[in-house]
Design a protein around this nucleic acid. Sequence first.
RNA 1: GCGAGCGUAGCUCAGCCUGGUAGAGCGUCACCUUGCCAAGGUGAAUGUCGAGGGUUCGAAUCCCUUCGCUCGCUCCA
Length: 592
Amino acid sequence: MSEPKENVLMEKIVSLCKRRGFVYQSSEIYGGINGFWDYGPLGAELKRNVKEQWWKTIVHHRDDVAGLEATIIMHPKIWEASGHVATFTDPMCDCLLTKKRFRADQVEAQSGTAYHYEGAEDPETVTCRDPFSVLLPPGKPPESARKVAKEFYQQRGVSNPTLIGERTEKLEGTTRYNPENGAQLTERKPFNLMFKTYVGPTATEADVAYLRPETAQAIFAQFKNVHETARQKVPFGIGQMGKAFRNEVTPRNFTFRSREFEQMELEFFIKPDEAVEALAGSVAKAADNAWQGEPQADWGWEVWHKYWVEQRIRFYEGIGLTRDCFEEYWQKPEELAHYARACVDILYKFPFGTQELEGIAARGDFDLAQHEKHSGKTMGVFDEELRAAWGKLDEAKKAAMQAKFIADKTAAGLKKGATEADAKVQAEAEAKVYFDKLAKGQYIPHVIEPSAGVDRLILALLANAYSELTTTDEKGKSETRVVMKFHPRIAPVKVGIFPLLKNKPELVAKAKAVRDLLRPHMTVFYDDGGAIGRRYARQDEAGTPFGVTIDFDTLGEKPELLDTVTLRDRDTQQQTRVAIQDLLGLLLPKVR
RNA sequence: GCGAGCGUAGCUCAGCCUGGUAGAGCGUCACCUUGCCAAGGUGAAUGUCGAGGGUUCGAAUCCCUUCGCUCGCUCCA
């Protein structure tokens, strides 16, 4: 058994996916469409299984999570509140000379003399009338501007350019030129990563809506409804799976970065640490590994965060991805988005590099607070016990909590660039509002967000399952075949069913009876085509973990083996003799 | 969006330079044969050579455009 490396491996996986019907390019007969992929018969089963495992693990097998299935198009104000309208729009421009791309808002301001040209000519070739200009910092000779301009016109086909219409202009603080070479940049082009559409027949600016770039915001928007109808109390979570859309600049690496993709997201709402402290007396420390057990009343956000990281990794282990497939990346404080307190990326070691499979962020109360602000509807919850507990708290403890809150908020304000005095005044005002509400038992829940990409996970599972088996026959001819070692829980087909020979009606009839016995409980594939070894090999390539072969002993050639079959294990190729009546009881626990 | 490379049967690829009307291996399907790991035999299907246009008597081959893929730049809340 060997593991092929790098792009070769990726190419093999892509090829297998097409050949066996895991993944096809979308719209292939029309030449394909960049960043969109379809799942074929085996891929569709695989994906269903993965999603079902997630839903079972996150929603069904827990008391404290409820499900949601929201629309893809939502009120556009949701994306203003979430920040996506602002942050997903990056103005870009390119250097006219080197074509290098810049974020227009990140080009440093420069001053100097701009040399403008109307074009260039060369009597022997052509004349170019495209205007161009070059910015020179103070003190540089005009000749260097002309050199850059000539290069520009040479690129445009004027092989020996004479510049036309040079004029100069003093500029202060301009961002229209490439700081590296002084060449003019193109006009700014806005680049919005959200897919835009129109709701209703008129298609005016007033009708603009977006396809959701993440499923999470629907959960925040429906938080109040779910909280009231699901009879859940904080801490509790809302899980959702569904399609999301991002107009990625560069879809890459097969299905890894697609423009239409599916997410599995949980928003787990928790009490703010101050409420936990008031209720439980203290907030548990994350360092003591308490987070590996059952949730406790004294868990603050740090412990909950670690708890979910561990839960998620256990989920991956449950579908065949061992811990050594992953790297955990704890984002450094300076890398965190402004609303996040901590974020862990679970990275999978893909053949093309180690890349993010899931992000688990501790987001504070940012999202719900934003929606409260933008919608005008309260997102807070009321907790009777908290009100009572707060009333019994001694004043020293309250004062200590407030002091810490103010110190943290002040530090955050300073980081955003406020003066120390302003930050302090602001923090004190926030503290007053916050603690007044807390005393009444009111708060906006904080949230831990484990957010996973389904399609990325599918790709990880494909890469993880891929293995090659080289066999050499007695003639010395060696052959390499592919075995997809999916965990039985996610394997598209659970069991292949084969009559040893197809020209013996008794074998065929018995095999079909076994198929009908198992089919109500798991995916089966009946195959009577070709030699038995070939059928095993075909199922190995599809990742089918078990094979059942009906032979003459099944029919009672050896009376003691009547109604037994051989059960073949995909990974070991071992065969065991099993009574037909025991098959279901043996297989079912392994595939569920 | 820019640059480079690539696109021929379901898959992997040859043919392209030097135009003459498309091939191999594997797979698929049918039949025969089958006695547990891609066995053998016989037969068959499958390509508007990524698409469009141009040059030419004639284009998979030369030229232009376009779409897709890969890599790099850029982007990735």
